[in-house]
Write a protein that binds this DNA or RNA. Structure first.
Length: 670
DNA sequence: CCCGTGACTTAGCAGATAGGGG
DNA sequence: CCCCTATCTGCTAAGTCACGGG
């Protein structure tokens, strides 16, 4: 005990050493307070960021368009020259909007400005409120619903809910017992008393006619003329223009989800106990609006009122409501390209980089803790080892019966692991098999250190399969401990850290300087894939996978034949040239040579594509790219090897990572 | 310390869209 | 130019984590 207490004290000491100079921080905080009083915006010099030298935001007014152009002064000389300032504009890129005006929009570089003091998210916020789901349109008279073989006209409310079911008829979950039970129970609540007394058995309900009608409708939608499609597109654009943006602190920012979720049947992931329940229609009376006091407050639809209008600048959301399935709160927030999301994202990677600096110490620490006299400490240390080594999620406890039965590290149960003292020639293998987030299966056989193995045996002693593996541990205990090891450290920082560091290492290892661009991109994708595997980011193999693979293979075969032909032609041209010895035939040889080269390159490209796709069958790269990989690593890699950034990031991704694209140089190190 | 709540990030899937080949 | 598929985007569920009150 003694020694462990000592260690604890040491830990405390190191914390302060590690904590990026507490004193300084406090000073800055004080400064922040002062500035806040002075009504100056964004006065924080909060942390180690380079941007702290930049001038504070200035309040300027919108121009006539209502579009907010960042102040000119902001673009005065910076300490870092940026030769690629206007690169983005030159990039032709998919959006062939006929409005040249859009492209001229100056991109605001929020990352060159100072941040707000901790806790304050904005000074001014104005928006138009949410867009509600379109009202229900009753079915035409000729679309029938049958109960027990007889036509039955449903009340509007009951009909609406019935259509939700009818639209899902082809889906297998309409056959699931829980789904049907939940649906039927909620449907009956919407029925009139007569309907309720008649419709007592879901199996006697015949939705097929309704279902056919919807299929015909969607078919008709596909067959619409160009003009009609354009009309819909225009309408969507209008909606986006009006409701899709807000003004936050002098800047027009894109909103992520300005449309309220329409009513429908809840489809949880995996074996969800609430699947099939009715997700009710959200009304203005459910909606809380958040905006500035001095902004133009959005008007509720005629004849309606908001539940509440508040002015809370300690939060980032514009609109919220409570959803009826889990009783959780849903929000309307800004797009990832916005300042408010981008800053947070940047900060996340900075925290992970701070972990990089002390991860060795932390690893030594938890290895020591495997020997602790205290069970609690040992469990914590083994759990942390899993989180670090295997990139497991923290694993909060969940309310039973409310959600699908899934687990993370701290909530692992005895039944989720198997211990093999020896397996396939390896010692001390732990076999993991459990459902994680989104009911994605985690299956892995991992050789672990002997001490870990012995500890696991100990933790499992005298326990039932359904008992918690770490019975003295939860995420709160773990995170409190992590907080002591490093300021801002939580379980998920390890995922971010390990993902990003793995990408960086893999890129170093896999990139061959002599490769051409497609081959280098394959290497990038492989590095990305290593991360996706680490984080267990899976996807269902695309429905058309086999077919598309076959297509690609036949393309390759065709290309091979083409190559063979070209080679034959080259050969005969050479022979011809040897005989004739004239200029013309020499030229022919040259052009044939070129043709062969071209085809070889094309073939290579196709083969690379095939490899890439095959290796990617069940792996989703997007999630790690978007949420775990410090974008500056990728940007630096692109700059180093002369790979156009568009090969790595699509338009949305480039918008989200604009800060990284702008600031990372080729020598960036995570 | 426990528990519920709130805010925010992370997740896979399905439908929309675009772009390359015939 | 059109079609068909590969990729992108929108959607919303499902996590993480902090906080406050008892």
């Amino acid at each position: 005990k003694d020694s462990s207490e000592k260690k604890h004290k040491d830990k405390e000491k190191t914390k302060h050493k590690d904590g990026s100079s507490e004193k300084h921080k406090d000073k800055h905080k004080d400064k922040d307070k002062e500035k806040r009083k002075e009504e100056k915006v964004g006065a924080s010099v909060g942390d180690t960021r380079e941007c702290s030298v930049f001038p504070p935001r200035s309040k300027d007014e919108p121009d006539d368009d209502g579009f907010y152009v960042p102040p000119k002064e902001d673009s005065k000389p910076l300490k870092r020259p940026r030769e690629d300032d206007d690169k983005d504009k030159k990039v032709p890129e998919g959006d062939k909007k006929k409005k040249p005006k859009k492209e001229e929009e100056q991109k605001w570089k929020w990352w060159e400005e100072e941040r707000y003091p901790e806790g304050i998210k904005w000074k001014f916020l104005e928006h138009k409120g949410p867009v509600f789901a379109p009202p229900y349109e009753p079915l035409p008279e000729n679309v029938k619903f049958y109960y027990d073989g007889k036509v039955m006209k449903l009340s509007t409310k009951a009909e609406e809910v019935a259509t939700f079911f009818a639209k899902m008829l082809d889906h297998e979950y309409t056959t699931k017992e829980i789904f049907r039970k939940n649906f039927f129970k909620d449907w009956r609540k919407e029925m009139t008393s007569e309907e309720k007394s008649t419709i007592t058995n879901l199996s006697k309900c015949d939705f097929t006619h309704m279902s056919q009608y919807f299929k015909a409708q969607s078919e008709a939608r596909k067959q619409m003329s160009k003009e009609e499609k354009q009309k819909i597109k225009d309408e969507n654009e209008r909606l986006l223009k009006e409701y899709g943006y807000c003004v936050m602190d002098n800047h027009k920012e894109r909103i992520a989800n300005f449309k309220i979720e329409p009513p429908g049947l809840f489809r949880g992931r995996g074996n969800h106990p609430k699947m099939g329940m009715l997700k009710r229609r959200i009304m203005p009376e459910d909606i809380i609006i958040n905006c500035s006091k001095d902004s133009k407050i959005p008007a509720p639809p005629p004849g309606h009122k908001w539940k509440e209008v508040r002015h809370d600048n300690k939060v980032t959301w514009l609109v919220s409501w409570t959803e009826n399935i889990q009783g959780s709160i849903k929000y309307i927030m800004l797009n990832p390209s916005s300042r408010i999301k981008g800053e947070k994202d940047w900060q996340k990677y900075e925290t992970a980089r701070r972990l990089k600096k002390c991860v060795d110490k932390i690893r030594n620490q938890y290895r020591e803790d495997w020997k602790s006299k205290e069970m609690k400490v040992r469990q914590r240390a083994v759990a942390l080892y899993f989180i670090d080594k295997l990139a497991l999620r923290a694993g909060n406890e969940k309310e039973e019966g409310e959600t699908a039965d899934t687990v993370g590290c701290c909530s692992l149960r005895v039944e989720h692991i198997k211990l093999h003292p020896e397996l396939d020639g390896q010692e001390y293998v732990v076999e993991f098999d459990f459902l994680g987030k989104d009911s994605i299966r985690y299956y892995n056989k991992v050789p672990v250190e002997k001490r870990v193995f012995k500890n696991l045996q100990l933790f499992m002693e005298n326990k039932q399969p359904e008992d918690d593996l770490f019975d003295r541990l939860n995420t709160s205990i773990l995170n409190k401990h992590l907080q002591d090891l490093m300021e801002g450290l939580t379980a998920k920082v390890f995922r971010t850290y390990n993902a990003s560091i793995t990408l960086q290492q893999q890129l170093k290892e896999l990139t061959n300087p002599d490769d051409n661009i497609p081959a280098k991109i394959l290497s990038y994708n492989r590095a990305n894939r290593a991360v996706a595997i680490l984080c267990n980011h899976q996807r269902a193999p695309p429905k058309t996978f086999e077919k598309s693979m076959m297509n690609l293979q036949s393309k390759i075969d065709a290309k091979k034949e083409q190559l063979a032909d070209a080679r034959r032609e080259l050969k005969s041209a050479k022979a011809d040239a040897k005989v004739r010895r004239d200029e013309k035939s020499k030229k022919t040889v040259e052009s044939k040579k070129k043709a062969v080269q071209r085809i070889e390159e094309q073939l290579m490209k196709l083969e690379v594509q095939a490899t890439d796709r095959e290796e990617n069958k069940q792996i989703a790269l997007g999630t790690s790219k978007l949420n775990y990989l410090d974008p500056r690593i990728s940007v630096a890699w692109c700059k180093k090897w002369g790979i156009p950034i568009e090969k790595i990031y699509n338009k949305t991704q480039r918008e989200k990572f604009a800060w990284a694209i702008d600031m990372a140089e080729e020598d960036y190190e995570f």
